[in-house]
Design a protein around this nucleic acid. Structure first.
Lengths: 340, 340
DNA sequence: TTGTAGGCGTTATCAA
DNA sequence: TTGATAACGCCTACAA
């Protein structure tokens, strides 16, 4: 079907390994011969068989992408798909194929089950996005496959990560509201609020309040469901009617809160200011558009691939790297001065 | 690192090929021996090396996923990601790995460039989603790789497809509005409107009008940009102020039109009815929720994989299959009777 | 600079 | 029922 090294060698009346050397830019082939080989290879449409190559190489030139979420949850999450876009393009740029897998919950990780991608297709390395069970990380580490984790970090576990500076983001959003003149600022949380991204954003919010001499008030913080921003803000307003602004743990909650507040007759930002987190697409297109914390999601994905490939290509063991991506405040129409 | 057939054979003091036969459920191994082999294989954590296998097999147990769009456009399109979710889960269920690739525009298909996934990793078959250049299909067909195309069909080109019955969908939406009492119904189009999905939906709309004895009026049809539903409907209303309802070529346009109409003081559905197409998530959550045409997107993806794998496993050449998925009308809050 | 030989892990063909 | 041998396509010592 496809031409092989053998075919090329035969056609030129030379040995296979000369062809191999010529095409792989290895020393030991004269320039004339190299040109002849290259020319014929092109003519015959030669493409290497990666499987054959991997047998001796131990390298498959493929990376694995693994998400711990159900595939549909993953795909409907703009944050993760943004990261994935970056991963995909960078992998291609670095000449790696990308295998996609989502770890079904049914997967018996505890029994040491390894995804087929890893155990049988033997991808060179793994990109893990989002939270995953510790058992999984242990198993994968034991397997010796290099991996980089995006947007998740298991405390006390050595792994390459690319994460967001959530505290900084929470700080930026809060400080922005303070600068606009707000003094009573709520935090619309998500689940869980005890650890992970949301907890860190909450911390940033609290730190910013403290830094500006504003008192911490538990009544102003509401844990909530993923898209329950509307309910959360209503709860908070019941407890503290003097609140004039809120930082939401993400844009979904923020937008939901805005919708709900508008239904109660409040105008945004005239009567109430809200800042989100993530800068999803709707943050731009919604009315009013949403002040939020922007994260360069594709950049996170690209960075993860770069680090992974760097590790793969390194001669010697490299130190573990934790890359923290700085978020940026994007000021739009949902925040303004507090009502007089 | 990992146990090989050789290791198992050595441990049992038998020959490699007996082990191979035993583990692959091939005849020619006694039941006792088979059990012994299976047991040891499990103990040693044996997993086959697919690359080695593929060398003799010619099968890589991997499918390729290919999208003709830029990766970010693909990921932000709920229709396509829904299809992808179905593809991913079905591929896994059928024990195939999935390689992901998006064809960059820079790809010189005209020169017969084949994606690395195909030419070097040699996936067994290909899932193509959405429109793609004819050159590409020709090249891939010439390469002999089986492929199934979702949501696209190149006229006069033999290929397995899974598509939507767009005419039926357009018909259903239009008929629904007619049944509600509307007589002057607009069509909010997209680009292109001369061929492809949108054209077929438009046809369905026209057929429904004709079947119910309503005149065709070019003034009621507006081609438009992908998210320009609002502008489109305003154009139409300028030309034909007596319009009381509209079928949009997709939900994005429908939702955009609703937002715009509400800004002009119209209430939906009291003053104007709008039906969409696709049933994206926002169709459920928007206010008012959107009457639309639902398509089981994951089912389309699953079906595509099933057909592809069927073809791969078939002993003899199978006939080309065109699967057409029936859409369903979902009645929500954006459609009602025309104003009195 | 080029060729020879062996091996990567698996399957298939043939012989025992 | 089992074993020996060759082959898949490529790479890497090593020898010429």
């Amino acid at each position: 079907m496809t031409a092989t090294l053998h075919d090329i060698a035969e056609r030129l009346g030379i040995n296979i390994c000369t062809v191999s050397r010529a095409l792989n830019d290895k020393p030991g082939v004269g320039p004339k011969m190299r040109r002849r080989v290259t020319k014929v290879a092109l003519e015959m449409g030669y493409r290497p068989n990666i499987h054959a190559r991997s047998l001796t190489n131990k390298r498959t030139e493929a990376l694995g992408f693994l998400s711990g979420m159900e595939i549909s949850s993953f795909l409907s999450n703009a944050f993760y798909t943004g990261v994935f876009a970056g991963i995909e393009s960078e992998a291609r740029a670095l000449n790696y194929a990308l295998m996609f897998d989502s770890v079904a919950e049914s997967l018996d990780l505890a029994r040491g089950y390894m995804p087929k991608m890893l155990a049988e297709h033997r991808v060179d390395g793994l990109l893990v996005v989002g939270a995953m069970d510790e058992v999984f990380f242990k198993a994968i580490k034991a397997s010796g496959h290099p991996f980089v984790v995006v947007d998740y970090h298991l405390p006390g576990f050595d792994m390459d990560t690319v994460t967001i500076d959530n505290r900084r983001g929470g700080w930026l959003a809060t400080e922005h509201l303070i600068e606009r003149g707000h003094r009573r600022i709520a935090f619309i949380g998500g689940t869980p609020l005890t650890h992970g991204n949301f907890a860190e954003r909450l911390e940033g919010y609290q730190n910013a309040l403290a830094a500006h001499g504003l008192p911490r008030d538990e009544k102003l913080v509401q844990e909530g469901e993923v898209i329950g921003g509307g309910e959360s803000i209503m709860q908070i307003l019941k407890r503290a009617p003097d609140v004039t602004a809120a930082v939401a743990c993400n844009d979904i909650n923020a937008l939901n809160a805005i919708t709900t507040l508008e239904k109660t007759g409040r105008q945004i930002p005239r009567d109430f200011s809200i800042a989100g987190f993530d800068d999803i697409q709707e943050a731009q297109t919604s009315v009013p558009s949403l002040t939020t914390i922007h994260i360069d999601r594709p950049a996170m994905g690209r960075k993860a691939v770069q680090n992974l490939v760097e590790r793969l290509r390194a001669e010697h063991a490299n130190p573990i790297q934790s890359v923290v991506i700085a978020p940026q405040l994007v000021i739009r129409d949902s925040t303004g001065a507090p009502p007089a």
